[in-house]
């Protein structure tokens, strides 16, 4: 059910699991990743809406290097009410009903069925929240799409502004744009890519790039404690 509204987006469920990667002890565990993603954008002067770590893996069957969901942190944005559909219209009601159903089902999968009668979903599910949720189902072949290209070339990509997002040959960038994002940044790190998204236009600066490299410096030998 958790499918992107855009039909052209490649959606593949992969079984990659960063917890299986013990090359550097707890450095790769889920809590550590979540903390690093939060550290990146919670303390930032810029208004980043979310941070995602795309984890590289190798698919032996297809002999392909892939990037799949590693972890993500959704911080939110000032204008959470931005939606594609106009509130009150049939389309809006249908979209919200679908999103809320998906969220309720996910909630019950994780927490079990609600016994209190209280609605576990509450407010509307915004386009940016939905974009983030749908991202969990996606993966990229190395070299394809903004995250795949950043990983393949080792060069960060920084796309800011509606026109730039629309003209980028990457389905994810276009999906981001129609979901209200205005800036998309992909930074290659040791074994994956850190992606940052914002509903505001943030122009390229070395500050956040350096911070990503510092926070996700997988080459650091710190005894596996995570630093």
């Amino acid at each position: 059910q958790l499918q992107p509204s855009s039909s052209a987006t490649t959606t593949t469920i992969t079984t990659n699991n960063i917890n299986n990667d013990t090359r550097n002890g707890s450095f790769f565990n889920q809590d550590s990743l979540q903390q690093r993603l939060q550290l990146l954008i919670d303390g930032s002067m810029e208004s980043w809406t979310y941070a995602i770590f795309w984890q590289s893996s190798f698919e032996p069957v297809s002999n392909t290097s892939m990037l799949g969901w590693g972890d993500g942190y959704y911080r939110g944005c000032e204008d959470e009410k931005k939606t594609l559909a106009v509130p009150g219209t049939e389309e809006y009601i249908a979209v919200q009903a679908h999103r809320k159903n998906v969220l309720r089902e996910l909630n019950s999968l994780i927490s079990g069925p609600s016994t209190s009668g209280e609605d576990s979903v509450g407010d509307e599910v915004t386009d940016t929240e939905w974009f983030f949720l749908v991202s969990m189902t996606q993966s990229f072949v190395t070299g394809i799409g903004l995250p795949g290209m950043a990983f393949f070339t080792g060069v960060p990509s920084w796309v800011a502004g509606t026109d730039q997002l629309v003209s980028t040959p990457c389905e994810r960038a276009r999906h981001a744009q129609v979901s209200g994002m205005q800036t998309l940044v992909c930074v290659p790190v040791g074994n994956g890519v850190v992606e940052l998204g914002s509903t505001e236009i943030i122009f390229q600066n070395s500050g956040i790039l350096n911070k990503v490299r510092l926070v996700f410096n997988f080459d650091v030998q710190d005894g596996g404690g995570g630093g």
Partner: peptide
């Protein structure tokens, strides 16, 4: 067959927790 892979499950838990916090705070 309906199990959510571990990494996604952990991310979902965090997302839903934070979402609840945001709703309470607004």
């Amino acid at each position: 067959s309906r199990a959510v892979p571990l990494a996604r499950k952990a991310s979902l838990v965090k997302f839903l927790e934070k979402r609840k916090e945001r709703m309470i705070n607004t």
